[in-house]
């Protein structure tokens, strides 16, 4: 039982972050906050991958004398790509928000919807 709580604490953190991010995306009406929520959500997955790659007792995956247990490097490499994707997503989102603000003079979702109803 304790093993599940403390031994797997990485996973608990991942789940907590994931839910937090997801909640922010859904509940917040401010577009910037939504993007931040999205970022937190994605970050949790990055952590998940890195946790998966960790091999107990392993060192950094650099071949050298005296070490024969290495952490799996692949997830870290993968997540580098995913981080790039995340940054790209954020920048596209921010660019869109800038345009939205130019067009609607607001970045609150409610107010945008209200303006759409009027027109």
């Amino acid at each position: 039982m304790m093993d599940n709580v403390f031994g797997l604490y990485n996973y608990w953190v991942v789940i907590f972050l994931m839910m937090t991010g997801f909640y922010i995306v859904i509940s917040q009406r401010n577009l910037i906050k939504k993007v931040i929520g999205l970022n937190i959500f994605q970050t949790s997955v990055f952590l998940l991958y890195i946790t998966i790659g960790k091999v107990e007792g392993g060192t950094a995956p650099i071949v050298s004398e005296g070490f024969n247990v290495y952490t799996n490097p692949l997830p870290s490499v993968l997540i580098l790509t995913a981080i790039v994707v995340g940054v790209a997503t954020t920048s596209v989102a921010l660019a869109l928000i800038v345009r939205i603000r130019e067009a609607y003079e607001t970045i609150e979702e409610d107010e945008i919807l209200a303006q759409e109803k009027l027109t």
């Binding site: 997801f22 995306v25 959500f41 994605q42 989102a93 869109l96 939205i100």
Partner: peptide
């Protein structure tokens, strides 16, 4: 088009991240 694209971005990113979790 702008809010539409943004909404798609949010939904799409969530979808893609879900896929990423699954793959992991």
């Amino acid at each position: 088009a702008l809010p539409a694209a943004f909404q798609y971005l949010v939904m799409g990113t969530i979808g893609a991240t879900f896929i990423l979790i699954g793959i992991g």
